[in-house]
Write a protein that binds this DNA or RNA. Sequence first.
DNA 1: TCTTTTAATTAAACAGTTTAAGGGCTGCGC
DNA 2: GCGCAGCCCTTAAACTGTTTAATTAAAAGA
Lengths: 170, 170
Amino acid sequence: MGKKHKDGKKSKSKKKDQTEYTLVDLSPALTQAARSMRTVLSRNLFESGLYAGQDGVILSLAESDGMTAGGLAQKLGVKAPTMTRTIGRMEAQGFLERKPDAEDARLTKVYLTALGRDSVRAIEMAASACDRLATQEFSEKEIRNLVRLLKAIDANLQAEAHAIEEPDED
Amino acid sequence: MGKKHKDGKKSKSKKKDQTEYTLVDLSPALTQAARSMRTVLSRNLFESGLYAGQDGVILSLAESDGMTAGGLAQKLGVKAPTMTRTIGRMEAQGFLERKPDAEDARLTKVYLTALGRDSVRAIEMAASACDRLATQEFSEKEIRNLVRLLKAIDANLQAEAHAIEEPDED
DNA sequence: TCTTTTAATTAAACAGTTTAAGGGCTGCGC
DNA sequence: GCGCAGCCCTTAAACTGTTTAATTAAAAGA
């Protein structure tokens, strides 16, 4: 139900100042889609012994092995303790290993193990299977546009997210 | 780095059976965008005392007050215990209240309180602010397409998600 | 009436996340 | 050289979100 609303749903606006906000329904749609994606993806990943959220670490490392914990955290958009925990779990699972940097002993560098490297393909296949399922009847162009817009959204939002953190210096 | 890859990144394929999977990079893009969205949204929602994830409950109720706990769970794509917990927390916060159904005592119906109804506008504004921020330089058409595709993705994925649950009857 | 089914809850467990605090190491100024 | 400031990672504590399995309660049906 409700497939026809163009800008209905906003009809209950109380005529206050209103700020004239145009409802685009983006956030719920994005949230829902991402939730579904995560559900399916984690099911696909399960056989590999991976949880959704760990795949990003492996793919990042596959692209550039030996990243630091902090670098991974930043790249994946989580805080350092989260990454420490994730890495610890994945190390226990045998997907990767930590080594102190030879030059700067403060740094912890993270490397894929053989198992980790093996799982790269599994992850890529799971992800692409999921992607294909999700975009079944989409055209190539639609998919490209979609990904482009998604990345733009992320960039826009991250700029703001960081903009809020920075200027705090009373 | 890596802004130019069209279908590079796949170049490391080992020439195995390959299954010919075309990498569209959708899932990471979607995941990242959703994560950023959630971060910004929960910041916007924070003043209302809401956490991201609770907004869906209030909006659903705003659209159709008196839904059952199970109905909410299904609509929002979570399992019943999650909804029980969320509802419990939100009831404690004063946003909604539970009432047993008069006709079928098994059912728990959920209603918005005055506070809950007040927060609807705050949520809508937070969401639309977030949406506008995310889609700053997008055209109307791009946004519409984006939302349409996102919903289609959700539909595609949910169909699969359920398809896996059902046919299990040995 | 008794059994089966359905709805919600509770319990136990775990992933992911955060902030705050701790610890080791670098590097720079003195 | 020494010491202190700062950086990077980790630990600790707390909370949300999530799941499966077991429990309780009520309706529906045989």
